Simulated assay, not measured.
Amino acid sequence: MNKIIPHIYQVKVELEDIEPLIWRRLQIPADLFLHDFHKVLQTTMGWENQHLHLFRKGKKLFGMADDEWNGNPLFQDYTIVRVNDLLRKPGDEMVYEYDFGDDWRHRIILEMEMEPDPLEYYPVCIDGARECPPEDCGGPGGYQEMVAAVKDPSNPQHRFFKALFPDGLDPEYFDLEEINDILLEDDYGCLLPFDDYDEDEDED
């Protein structure tokens, strides 16, 4: 019996409210579950999976089911929802939100649907630009202030941020090969949430 190989979606992911634009172009299985797409986004953007997240499509919300969302008619557990349930044709969009404090919003646009390449591993990042901001840096405004301070020795916060990033802060850094190497790891290279690390330590 031949295995059915799903179609591939090419999507562009844009981190909103930062100029110049931080973006990634991905090719993913069209039937990828949203909880797995979350892991792919964490790795390809460069986040560390330290905060809560959800997907938005119109007024509907998709994320991890917990008591906070119980009874909300607009919320659905994302472990039973696939990307192609929400994005059906080129031009369709949804939003991925990460860290409700810093409020990182990613615009996800379906660019095209294609047949899979039997020699390719999916998901794969095929293009992109610029490094993801550091975790807990204060959102788009805080990040841009940080970059400006690192570049300007006369800025009152220059010494603080230079010490915080001794190896430098390069907003233009982007390593496509490194991203795709990490995607080959378990859970698409997504780091464990802090709570899971704590549980592992308790078991030792």
Rank of each mutant, 00 (worst) to 15 (best):
M1D: 00
K3Y: 03
I4C: 03
P6C: 04
Y9S: 00
Q10T: 00
P20M: 06
L21R: 08
A30M: 07
D31K: 12
F33T: 10
L34T: 06
H38P: 13
T43F: 08
G46E: 05
W47S: 07
H51G: 01
H51S: 06
L54H: 14
K57W: 03
G58E: 06
G63R: 10
M64I: 14
A65K: 13
P73Q: 08
F75S: 07
Q76R: 15
D77C: 12
D77Y: 10
Y78V: 11
V81W: 05
E97F: 05
D99Y: 08
R105E: 15
H106N: 13
I108C: 13
I109C: 13
L110S: 01
P116Y: 13
L119S: 12
Y121V: 12
Y121P: 10
Y121S: 13
V124W: 08
R130L: 01
E131G: 04
P134T: 07
G138E: 04
G142L: 05
M146P: 07
K151S: 07
K151M: 08
D152K: 06
D152T: 01
P153D: 00
S154W: 09
S154T: 09
N155Q: 04
N155E: 10
F160S: 06
F161A: 01
K162E: 08
P166Y: 03
D167N: 11
G168T: 03
G168L: 02
P171S: 04
E172S: 15
L176P: 12
E178M: 07
G189C: 03
C190P: 14
E199W: 07
E203N: 15
